[in-house]
């Protein structure tokens, strides 16, 4: 398939943000982490698109939506290779990578059922620790147990 045809699979936007190189199996997690399901803007996405790097990737195009670094970096836990293209007037005006944050608050559930955060009204806080060169682990501030981002449940 030519590049031109591939692009047509997900329509172009005039102004906004394109999030590319999301692993296809994590698309819906990315949607819930960024709270896109409650946004009233025009959003299109494609998934199971061929990707040399990821095998299958997903892409999200958001009209009139721009993200703060601290918000978009939350998806680095499950989509560390995601790329952001900032679009103005149909043109890419800026490109950004996501950065793995040191600490994340209130996005994900702790995997430990005996953790205080799963039994009382306490916001979760995780410290992001490097597991190996590719993956990270989330250590709960309260119970100190590790949650694997692959298994994490998003609020």
């Amino acid at each position: 398939m030519s590049d031109q045809k591939k692009k047509l699979l997900v329509s172009a936007i005039e102004n906004g943000t394109v999030i590319d190189h999301i692993p296809a199996n994590h698309l819906f997690k990315v949607i819930s982490i960024l709270g896109l399901d409650s946004l009233k803007k025009q959003i299109t996405f494609g998934t199971n698109l061929e990707s040399k790097k990821l095998g299958h990737k997903a892409i999200i195009k958001l009209s009139e939506v721009y993200f703060k670094d601290e918000d978009i970096n939350k998806i680095a836990l499950i989509a560390p290779h995601a790329k952001l293209n900032i679009i103005h007037n149909f043109k890419v005006t800026d490109k950004r990578d996501v950065q793995v944050p040191e600490k994340i608050k209130g996005i994900a559930k702790c995997g430990n059922p005996k953790c205080i955060t799963n039994n009382d009204n306490v916001n979760t806080i995780f410290y992001v620790l490097p597991k190996d060169s590719e993956k990270v682990a989330l250590k709960c501030h309260y119970c100190e147990k590790i949650t694997d981002p692959e298994d994490m449940e998003v609020f």
């Binding site: 430990n112 005996k114 953790c115 205080i116 955060t117 039994n119 009382d120 306490v122 709960c140 501030h141 309260y142 119970c143 100190e144 147990k145």
Partner: peptide
């Protein structure tokens, strides 16, 4: 307390010192 992380949480909301005397299987 039987729940893990309970003592740390208590120490964040109490304005008196909290000594962790055992929180679940944690510490």
């Amino acid at each position: 307390h039987p729940l893990e992380g309970s003592a740390r949480f208590a120490s964040e909301v109490a304005d008196i010192p909290v000594v962790n005397a055992g929180d679940g299987a944690n510490q």
